[in-house]
Design a protein around this nucleic acid. Structure first.
Length: 268
DNA sequence: CTTTCAGCCTGACGGC
DNA sequence: TGCCGTCAGGCTGAAA
């Protein structure tokens, strides 16, 4: 499940292979994704140079000479550099061939991802909140935007209008480190505690991106889990197990249709 | 305005 | 062994 760190790791992994390269060919075997792949995409991009490899939230942006491709990995997607003539695996949906001979393969079993073309701005990027690792985001913003809101803090920090790229794993971990219960109302948390939470959100994401670096060296033909999955998670996926701090039993509740694990003793 | 929820999709897993 | 139900997750758009 690609969270922001994996998308950033993917961006860094593919960039050396695609940046400033000409798109020779785009092959779509299965265009039925989260949204249908843009009609005529292979013809739209053929011959263009990739002039930028960027990321915004969990979207990858391949900037071309006359527009850009927006790529989302959904929940099960991956984009890897393949050796030429690598056999197609099940769920390999798209292949991008570059002028230097490099080949990118998009693999996505659940097909929640996206490949969209726009010659201008992408609608998907229009109303996004700040990047969590930028100076536009901090705990003060959380406190300001949380005022008067009854929504639980966990879905609140996972709302893309508040801050982008904080998925279930890192929301859970940041709240544990901050000692805040995931079901506490967003409007009933002090500024002081929000400042702590803001820092932990940054820390947990930055550490995961750093660990993702271990993935980069074998980005070619790699289909294994990214390095940061080795990162020890204190609460995510550990409902019923012991809290690493107090030894108590971790509780698993549902908030906004998502599993939310926390320690009733350490988080208030 | 805020909040909730169905739907998209497949693989893994548990129960029988 | 296989069948069936449930779950997981990001994001959107409609409903409440």
């Amino acid at each position: 499940m690609p969270e922001l760190p994996e998308v950033e790791t993917t961006r860094r992994g593919i960039k050396p292979w695609v940046h400033q390269q000409k798109i020779v060919r785009l092959i779509i075997r299965q265009g039925s994704l989260r949204w249908p792949v843009t009609e005529g995409l292979p013809e739209l991009v053929r011959g263009q140079i990739v002039v930028g490899v960027m990321r915004r939230a969990k979207y990858l942006i391949l900037k071309l000479e006359h527009g850009s491709m927006l790529v989302h990995l959904g929940m099960s997607g991956s984009l890897r550099v393949a050796k030429p003539d690598t056999p197609w695996r099940k769920h390999d949906h798209i292949e991008l061939q570059l002028g230097n001979g490099a080949t990118l393969r998009y693999h996505d079993p659940r097909r929640f991802g996206a490949w969209l073309w726009s010659s201008g701005e992408h609608d998907q990027l229009a109303h996004l909140g700040p990047e969590p690792l930028s100076s536009d985001f901090d705990g003060e913003r959380l406190w300001q935007m949380g005022k008067g809101r009854k929504m639980a803090v966990k879905p609140f920090i996972m709302d893309n209008k508040i801050v982008v790229g904080v998925g279930n794993i890192y929301a859970s971990e940041a709240l544990f480190r901050s000692g805040i219960r995931p079901n506490r109302a967003a409007g009933r948390i002090s500024k002081k505690r929000y400042l702590v939470l803001g820092e932990h959100i940054k820390d947990v994401l930055a550490a995961a991106i750093e660990q993702g670096g271990t993935t980069l060296r074998d980005f070619v033909n790699s289909s294994g889990e990214p390095g940061y999955f080795q990162q020890t998670l204190a609460v995510y996926g550990r409902g019923g197990e012991d809290c690493i701090d107090c030894g108590g039993v971790l509780k698993d509740i549902r908030l906004g249709q998502r599993s939310s694990v926390f320690c009733p003793n350490c988080q208030r």
